[in-house]
Simulated assay, not measured.
Amino acid sequence: MESSADQIKQNNIALMGSDLGTIYSELWQEVGRMFSNWQEYVSLFGTNPERIELLNNAAGHFFRTVQDGLWERTLLHLSRITDPAQQGKKKNLSIHSLVEAITDIALKSKVTASIARATEKCAFARDWRNRFIAHADFDLALDQSAQPLAPASRLQVREALEAIEEVLNTISTALQDATTRFSEMALLNSGEDLIYLLEFATRKKEEREKRFESGQYTEEDLADLRPRSI
């Protein structure tokens, strides 16, 4: 029987204490969303060239918009979750928020080191967030000898996500004797389902075109050519 998010949170609070359990639970949910967004990106745009060709042939402009949106959302997530715990009078929910909530000195030291590694792995995403996604750097936009954006690749994103996962697992290993493999979580109604439907539709379209070329088309083939309102 699956537990609800609230039940998981209450269990975390029971094992970790109120402050740490609450922060950990919210970050766990956030990291889960990060990984699912990235899984969708990789599934659609990072699997093989044939899949890219399928998407381009189906609706190239639309899927390029989706690709850019998922990419920027992932970099924004990486930046946000490694922001300082507090900026001025404003508190942020980030992995840095965990440190003050940990009372065990040895665990605090391990988590602090893990957070430092994750923050370093996400530095490239922060440059993109600060100068391109959340703000439009003037010199960069006008190409006035601006410093280029930090190199960013799928490998860097994967390593950054794994480093963030390690932060949470450092805590859960110590206090729950458990870890989470976020990349192995199953997605329902995902991009993989869309790929299947597009492949099916493409095959049907090719079969229909062959029937038209041979003059053996059907009334249903003709009906498929008429615009429909949904």
Rank of each mutant, 00 (worst) to 15 (best):
E2K: 14
E2P: 09
S4F: 00
S4Y: 03
A5Q: 07
A5Y: 04
A5H: 06
D6W: 05
Q7M: 11
Q10C: 00
N12W: 01
I13H: 01
A14V: 05
L15M: 12
T22E: 09
S25W: 02
L27M: 05
E30Q: 11
V31R: 08
V31A: 04
M34D: 06
E40V: 09
E40N: 12
Y41H: 15
Y41C: 13
V42L: 07
F45E: 11
G46I: 13
T47A: 09
I52E: 00
N56F: 02
A59R: 10
A59W: 03
G60K: 14
H61V: 09
H61M: 13
H61I: 14
H61F: 03
F63A: 14
R64L: 10
E72M: 13
L76M: 13
R80H: 04
T82L: 05
T82N: 10
A85G: 07
A85S: 09
Q86P: 00
G88K: 13
K89V: 10
K91I: 07
L93I: 08
S94R: 12
S94Q: 04
H96V: 07
H96I: 08
H96K: 10
S97Y: 00
L98N: 05
L98T: 10
V99I: 12
V99F: 02
T103Y: 03
T103R: 08
A106W: 00
A106C: 06
K110Q: 10
V111F: 02
T112H: 00
I115H: 02
T119N: 09
K121A: 07
W128S: 07
N130L: 06
N130S: 05
R131V: 04
A134K: 09
A134R: 09
A136Q: 14
A136N: 11
A141S: 13
L142P: 01
D143W: 05
D143H: 15
S145G: 10
L149V: 14
S153D: 04
R154F: 02
E159K: 12
I164M: 05
I164F: 02
E166N: 15
N169W: 02
A174K: 14
D177C: 14
T179S: 10
S183H: 13
A186D: 12
N189V: 12
G191T: 15
E192Y: 05
D193L: 11
D193Y: 03
L194W: 00
L197P: 00
A201F: 01
K205E: 12
K205R: 11
R208N: 04
R208L: 04
E209Q: 14
K210D: 04
R211T: 11
G215M: 06
Q216Y: 02
E220A: 10
L222E: 07
L222T: 10
A223L: 10
A223I: 07
D224F: 02
R226M: 07
R228F: 03
